[in-house]
Amino acid sequence: MVRVLLNVPKQVRKGEPFDVKLLISHPMESGQRRDAMGLAIPRDIVRRLVCTFDTEEVFGMDLFPAIAANPFLVFSAQIERSGTLSIMFTDDHGVVQTETAAVEAV
């Protein structure tokens, strides 16, 4: 289980953009490194991240080994009604994880 810190305002103004801030505990092992015995350390990165609001896509990102360990991401969203913002991501082990936050639009 990967730890995720998702920071979203609980309440936003309708149609006004707000920041979605995300930290994911993940080594983002690049696949370029070798261990003490000289063996390649297999790649293990978060490769895809999608943010949706209810069913609509807000933001999507393909990640590569050049994204730093414990990925940090800020992007912007805007909504017209209250609903649920969810972040879904997939890593090289096929682990899919979803984090959600309720956002109220006023």
Binding site: Q32, E57, M61, F64, A66, I67, L73
Partner: peptide
């Protein structure tokens, strides 16, 4: 070692076109 860093797409609910992250 690999030239690609990220590809980001903005959907219909995206706000201002701006992203912030940390790279290697």
């Amino acid at each position: 070692p690999l030239p690609e860093v990220l590809h980001a797409t903005f959907g219909p609910r995206a706000g201002v076109p701006r992203i912030q992250t940390r790279i290697r």
